[in-house]
Amino acid sequence: MWFKNIQVFRFTKPFDMDENALHDQLAEQAFTPCGSQDVSRTGWVRPIPGNEKHGQDGLFLHSSNGFQMLAAKRQDKVLPAAVVNEQVQEKVDDIEAEQGRKVGRKERQEIKDEMIFSLLPRAFVRSRIQHGYLDNKRQMLVVNSASAKGGEEFCEGLRAAVGSLPVIPLTTMDTPAQVMTSWLLSGNAPEGFELGTECELRDPSDEGGVIRCKNQLLTADEIRNHIQAGMYVSKIELVSKSGISCLVDDKFTIKRIRYGDMIQDKADEVYTSDATERFDVDFSIMTLELAELINGLLAAFGGENTGGLGE
């Protein structure tokens, strides 16, 4: 449940839907498995996996301290391209041999569509669950995704459920690449953080190179020389005072989050064998730690860019 990568969105208008109303909206679009001819299906599931009890843990959202966890499930039919193409080619070969004519591009596509239709009921099914939570106090939506596409898909699903979701990706006042580059040139980490041991340098030219540094002293002369030669920092590892390490990129995506021993010990102090209670403890600690991390990173990049909010 601990988020490893996050996409953060800001509500441009207050989102204050009643918890019961939000639950009912999600329940109306509960996940149902793919039918025989469905290519994919999406819907909402209970955020606490494998728990079907009545009460809070049976709801389509889990609330704690002003945070609300949601879970979206996507199921896709998997048809290997090689299998489809082989079946299509066999059909094309049969037609050309029996009718003595060449199969054109349009007819080949029609054959392919028919083949996919016939194979779908026997296709493998791949499922994944994506979590996200609403931070009602800060009016943010945090999605556990390493890609902008994954974050947008979660938003689209939530928008379809509630009717309107006025959110935009969280952005900073200062340009992340410039700020991160300045840290390594000066050798100074932002307040509240230490430099980690990983970064990525890019050449700004169209065909520029990329240098990835791991387990390196980021203030070393070799790295500074590359920057002075014109490269910029596109990713950097930071470690917060609370012990969270993460990789921040030039799109302000926060990736590869690792929670330090102090945070894990805090969660382990509360022993419980109940899945719902365990989830609630982890969720409460994680959301507070991530809220602090996001606030610290925003400050490091000059604050939040609030231009256009509320318009």
Rank of each mutant, 00 (worst) to 15 (best):
A146T: 06
P176S: 12
D174R: 10
T175M: 08
G163T: 03
A160E: 13
T172H: 06
A146Y: 07
L158Y: 02
V162T: 06
C155H: 11
A148H: 12
L170K: 03
G151P: 00
A148T: 15
S164T: 11
A160D: 13
A148S: 15
T171V: 09
S147Y: 03
V167C: 10
R159I: 01
E153F: 05
A146N: 10
P166L: 09
V162G: 06
I168L: 09
A146S: 15
T171H: 11
R159S: 12
T175K: 11
S147F: 02
G157I: 09
L170Q: 07
G150S: 08
D174H: 09
R159P: 00
T172A: 05
A160N: 12
E156R: 13
T172F: 09
V167G: 04
K149M: 10
P176F: 08
I168Q: 11
A161M: 04
P176W: 08
P169M: 05
L158E: 03
A146F: 10
L165G: 06
A177H: 12
I168C: 07
M173F: 11
T172M: 05
E153C: 08
G163W: 02
C155Q: 06
L165F: 02
M173A: 15
I168G: 00
M173D: 14
C155T: 13
G163E: 04
A177C: 08
P169T: 07
G157M: 08
E156P: 00
T171R: 15
A161E: 06
A160S: 14
E153N: 08
L165I: 09
S147C: 01
L170G: 00
G157V: 05
T175I: 07
S164R: 02
P166M: 11
T172E: 09
G157D: 14
E152Y: 04
R159C: 11
V167E: 02
E152R: 14
V162N: 05
P176I: 09
M173I: 15
V162C: 03
P176A: 05
E152S: 13
A177T: 13
T175P: 00
G151V: 05
G163K: 00
